[in-house]
Nucleic acid binder design. Structure first.
Lengths: 354, 354
DNA sequence: CTGAAAGCGCTTACAG
DNA sequence: CTGAAAGCGCTTACAG
C-alpha cells in the first residue's frame, strides 16, 4: 500500500532547482522579491515534480485561513441546497473551499461550530433560522464570540441573537404580500401551517400574515419544517372536530417544502387545488414552479443568499453588525384562486404572474 | 479588530496545568501513557481555558487526514444533494468533515481534485458520472493516482475509467425494468430524452431501455442533464417535423430532474399525463412522489450512496478496485398508464405501486 | 534579489 | 507514567 511519505515537499523542489526554500516559497506564492526569470524556472521545476502545496502547513506558518464552514439543517432540503450552491459557487471564485456541516438542534450547532473551529476555518456561515428566545442561542453566541476573538468571521442567515453580520430574508413583508394576495382573492378563512414556534423565521412570516389577514386567520398550528410537517398539518386541520365550522378556503404553509406536503396530502384526500382550497408557500425553491398546480409563493431570493453571506465575511468586521436585507417577490401561480363562492375577488395590484 | 493571536495553545494549557506539552497532548487525544487522574485534571484545565485543538497542526505533526472531499456537479441538483446528505450524515458519525466542491466539466474536476489535495483531505469522493470515453478521464485518473500514492483514498459513484473503488447504481437493470413496464402498458412508440451521450450513466440507462423496448424506441435525443434539458427535449420532440408520424405514447427522461422539465413542458402545452402521454424517470429523488401526476421512476437508492461510498474509503485499499452494487426498484406512480387505444395492457408482475 | 534561521501548534519516538 | 527534543511542511522577518 502506498505510504503517505511520497508527497513532494518544498525542500524537494528547492534541492532540484538548486535554490533555497525561501525562493521556492516566494516563487510559488507569487510573493515579490524573486527575479521573474528565476520564479518562472522554479515554478516549472515544481510543476514537473508534481508538487502540491500543503495548505495546512502554509496556514500554520502564514496564518491565512480561507475555508468557509457552512452549517445547515440538512443539505437534502432544497432550501439549504440552493443556499449552499450559491455560496460554493461564489466562494470558488475567491479560491475558497466550503466545509459543510449538518446540525438540526442547538446542541448540534454548538458542536459543529466547535469542530469548524478545530479545522481552523476562516469563517462560519450559519444558515439555519435563529431562535425567538435569546437564551436559546447563548451557548452558540459564546462559541462564535470566541471564534471571532481569534480572527474568525461569522455571518448568519436570518434573524438571530448572535451579534453577527446577517443576511436578512424579507420574511415579514413576504408574509404581508401573501396575506394581501389571499384577501384580494376573497379568502376570509385562512389556515396557517407553520414550522416550530421557536424559530424567528416562523415568527416573522406569521407576523406579516396575521397583520394583513387579521380575523381571516382561523387556524394556526406548528409542525416540523419539512414535507412531513405540511402533510401532518393538513391531516390535523381536516381531521379536527371543528373543521366544518372553520370553513377554511386557503392554506398557507410557512415554507415551500411544507407546502409540498400540503399539496400531497390534499391530493391524496381527493381535494382539488385551488378549486376546493388555495395553497401558498414561502421561498420559491426551484421545484415550486414544477408542482401541479404550480405553487404560489413569496420568493425570498434564496439563490442570492450565499453570495451575500460571502460578501459579508469578506469585509472587515465592523463594530456594529452589518445587515444585508433582501427583498421578496410575490409569485402568483396556479395554486391560489378565488375563494369558493366569492365573487368579490379583485386583481391584486402587487402580483406578478409567471 | 480581534487579532488571530488570541487562540489558546497546547503550551498555554501545559503551563497552566504545570505539566509538559507531551502530557497535555496525550491527555487530550486519549493516548495511553498518562495516569487517568492526571489526564482528567489536564482535560479540565484545557476546558476551562477554552482550548480548541488545531487540527491543521495536529495533522502536520501526526499525519492523520480525516476530511473527505466531495465533488458534485451542483449541490442544488436534488440528486447530488441527497447523495451529499447521506455522506455528511454518515461521515459525522466517524467525526469526519466533508468539503464540498462544484465541478461541471472535466477540467473543473481536475482542478478541484487538485485543490482538495492541497487541503490535504484524506479521501475524495467523485459523485459525477464517468465518461464513456476512457481518454476523457485520463487527466483526472493521473491526478487521483498521485493522490493515492500519497495515501489518499478515492471512491467514485458510477462507472468510471478511474481504477477506483466504486458505488455502482443499477442503471442498466433499472432501464430494463422501466422498458418492461412500458411494454406491459402497451406502449409501442417510446421517446427517450437523454442526458449527454458522453456519460456512462446515460449510456447504461439507454442500454437497458433499448434492450427491452427494441423497436418501440422511435426517438432518442440528448440534452443537458437538468430540468431545462427535459423541457428542451419535449420541445424538440413535439416541434419536430415528423412528430405526427412518430406517434409517441410515452416519454422516458433519463433522470427525474429531466422528467420534471418534461412534465412542465407538457403541461404548458396542454397535454395530459398519462392520458395523452406517459412519462417516467430515473433516480426517485424526493420530490418525484410529490409531482402531479406523481412520477413513475426507477429508484436507485441515492440516499444510500453516500454511506456506501464512506464504507469504501474507510476500508484499506485493495489491489483490485472494489465495487458496491446497489439494486433498484421500479416505482410505479400516476405518470404512466395504458397506451392510448391499447386494450392489451396487462399488469406488470414486477411493479410495486406506492 | 537571495538565503539561513526561527517559528507556526502539534505528535511521537526516545530517555528516564 | 512523565518529559525534553526533534520534526511535520511551510512562511517570513532579518541579513547580506
Amino acid at each position: 500500500m502506498a505510504e503517505r511519505g511520497g508527497a513532494v515537499r518544498l525542500v524537494d523542489v528547492a534541492e532540484r532547482a538548486g535554490v533555497s526554500l525561501a525562493t521556492v516559497s516566494r516563487s510559488l506564492t507569487g510573493a515579490s522579491g524573486v527575479s521573474p526569470g528565476l520564479a518562472e524556472r522554479v515554478r516549472g521545476v515544481a510543476e514537473s515534480m508534481g508538487y502540491v502545496a500543503n495548505l495546512q502547513a502554509r496556514s500554520l506558518a502564514g496564518g491565512t485561513e480561507s475555508s468557509i464552514g457552512l452549517i445547515v439543517t440538512d443539505i437534502a432540503d432544497p432550501y439549504f441546497a440552493e443556499i449552499a450552491s450559491g455560496l460554493i459557487a461564489s466562494a470558488a471564485g475567491q479560491q475558497r473551499m466550503v466545509q459543510l456541516s449538518h446540525a438540526a438542534t442547538r446542541e448540534a450547532v454548538l458542536a459543529q461550530v466547535r469542530v469548524l473551529r478545530e479545522y481552523r476555518v476562516g469563517a462560519i456561515v450559519l444558515a439555519g433560522s435563529g431562535y425567538v428566545d435569546p437564551a436559546a442561542e447563548a451557548a452558540v453566541a459564546a462559541e462564535l464570540d470566541a471564534f471571532r476573538q481569534t480572527g474568525g468571521r461569522v455571518a448568519v442567515i436570518g434573524r438571530h441573537h448572535l451579534d453577527a453580520d446577517a443576511v436578512l430574508p424579507d420574511n415579514v413583508e413576504a408574509g404581508r404580500s401573501l396575506g394581501r394576495h389571499l384577501l384580494s382573492l376573497g379568502h376570509g378563512r385562512v389556515a396557517l401551517l407553520a414550522g416550530p414556534a421557536s424559530l424567528n423565521t416562523v415568527a416573522d412570516r406569521l407576523l406579516g400574515l396575521t397583520e394583513t389577514l387579521g380575523d381571516a386567520v382561523v387556524h394556526v398550528s406548528h409542525h416540523s419544517f419539512e414535507r412531513a410537517g405540511g402533510a401532518a398539518g393538513v391531516a390535523a386541520l381536516l381531521d379536527g372536530t371543528d373543521t366544518m365550522r372553520l370553513g377554511v378556503t386557503a392554506i398557507v404553509a410557512l415554507s415551500d417544502v411544507m407546502a409540498i406536503g400540503v399539496l400531497g396530502e390534499l391530493r391524496s384526500r381527493g381535494l382539488r387545488v385551488p378549486h376546493d382550497l388555495s395553497v401558498a408557500g414561502f421561498d420559491d425553491i426551484a421545484v415550486a414552479a414544477d408542482l401541479s398546480p404550480a405553487l404560489t409563493t413569496a420568493r425570498l431570493s434564496i439563490g442570492r443568499i450565499g453570495a451575500e453571506a460571502l460578501a459579508l465575511i469578506e469585509r472587515e468586521p465592523a463594530d456594529v453588525p452589518r445587515q444585508t436585507r433582501l427583498g421578496h417577490d410575490l409569485v402568483v401561480r396556479a395554486s391560489t384562486g378565488a375563494a369558493p363562492g366569492d365573487d368579490t375577488a379583485r386583481p391584486d395590484p402587487e402580483e406578478a404572474t409567471e
